[in-house]
Nucleic acid binder design. Sequence first.
RNA 1: GGCAGCGUAGCUCAGUGGUAGAGCAGGGGAAUCAUAAUCCCUUGGUCGGGGGUUCAAAUCCCUCCGCUGCUACCA
Length: 575
Amino acid sequence: MAKRILITSALPYINGIKHLGNLVGSMLTADVFARFNRARGHETLFLCATDEHGSTTELAALEAGQEVVTFCAEQHAAQADVCRRFGLSFDHFGRSSNPPNHRLTQHFARMLWKNGHLELRSTKQIYSNADQRFLPDRYVIGTCPHCGYPAARGDQCENCTRVLDPADLIEPRSAISGSSDLEIRDSTHLFLKQSQFVPQLREWIGSKKDWPVLVTSIANKWLDEGLHDRGITRDVAWGVPVPDDIGDGKLKGKVFYVWFDAPIEYIGAAWEWAEANGKGDEWKRWWLGEAARDVTYYEFMGKDNIPFHTVGFPVTILGVRPQEDWKLVDYLKGFNYINYYGGKFSTSQKRGVFMDTALEILPADYWRYYLIANAPEGSDSNFTWDHFAGVVNKDLADVLGNFVNRITRFCASRFDGRVPGEGEYGPEEHALIEELQRRVQTYAEHFEAIEFRKASAELRAIWAAGNEYLTRTAPWTAIKTDRPGAAAAVRMGLNLVHTFSHLAWPIIPTAARTIHETIQPVAGGGDLIPWPEAPMAEELDQLEAGQPIRAPEVLFAKITDEQIAEWTARFCGEE
RNA sequence: GGCAGCGUAGCUCAGUGGUAGAGCAGGGGAAUCAUAAUCCCUUGGUCGGGGGUUCAAAUCCCUCCGCUGCUACCA
């Protein structure tokens, strides 16, 4: 029965191309899950967008010597391009700075204001006269009052790790201009009264028995420590403006905090999708009220994002009830981090591998397979070039690629490159069919449970079962004495190739298509290779006798020791 | 400092009360269709240390050690 599946990936921040850790923790895993659901025939809406607002963007644009609007437009285009080349199949890749998010963010704020969940509070903010702007805490630097470290940031001292208040710093100065002409000014802000929602949130989180421990433990930690009310406006220029009818007109010139508007862009992206595709109000069907009741909503993100999705965004949604009933997340998949040789991937230090440079080196499917098979689900995982090359060479080149190659070439040389029709399936074939029936079921169950490592391991086992079968039946030997027997084995082998393509498509879509085309063209345009839903006895006996096949070029070239050495040197980082 | 997660074979990781597992790497063998690719067998671990509960603990409890992350105005 077709289901309706809404999937959002955590929004990549606009500031630069993302690294492999960002990719696997949100966009890629969400993509594989989206493809799996589409392949099974479920109505799927997969959304992502760039998260563009905030002081970090303003300062990055400043550094790049660009207007913020230009900077964001260029960065968005660059990210959209690299995502497309990675095969990320967003139904829409939006922008948090686009009009739908402005409208929605202001709408949610008005509703929260009307429902009494927002209040005005006066706060002390650091203002830099030289920069003519308020400074976020981390952009005030000075000497740490605890350890004397001279370059401590206003939020936390990197040296002694203590949490600081910028007012505590000795000789504070602006991180932007270096100016020490700073003053403390009063500034009025809107606060979201999150503390009122603790019982509701606790009950909601408590009901999610199937969420990863990582997710519920982080959520419960925040609830146990007592939720602080959170300021949802900022004294910056680049963001969604606070409308005049909120806060008694005392918030002129202020914008909403990026973490308030960014999750709302999940809804905004659906609106953008509808506008871009002439679908009118259809986006509401996915998000709002009774029409969205049968939608199951999945979120994917790295662990740093979990508090905002288990507390912040849910409060926004709960706070506009009962008037409006927007979708709360049904399943939240959180990921740990990938480390690079024991250290963190770092955008600022250019340490590690980034999406654009990854594609300069190897096709997307190499990365997709490796990252999915080693997704940091249980704990942080560690990327090394040796490990990467080992997995790619063994699993993709040797087990899968070589399987396709050996059977198609044998068919080409001994059966005229056509699916042989002679011979009948016997005990070996029936045993294989039974095994695959079981394994494919398990593989699907791992996907449904959103367990990527386990799914990948099962897929690999399915490929290996093909190799084991060929070894047992040995058509290259059988052909000398039992041509029909050899023919049946080859026919089975080709059916396996075809089925492998369908099974692998969610993870390695491009290679899956190439593999499929060794047997026959992909039906219906080729944007989707559906799940093999029929019993394996049918799936593995569906190729027409006499149908021509074509042995492929090398599907997956092996990574050489020289390449490993070169890449290790090239990507060692700047330390 | 507080909190959380993790610690299982050389490596990457499954395994939450009932005789320690997988893949890779290592060793032996088979096969020769294939990208020297495959298949079979196999070496290898007092499950971070210690203590406790239990007929039985990798699994539950306590404690210590180590690693990682979070700690709310960077996102």
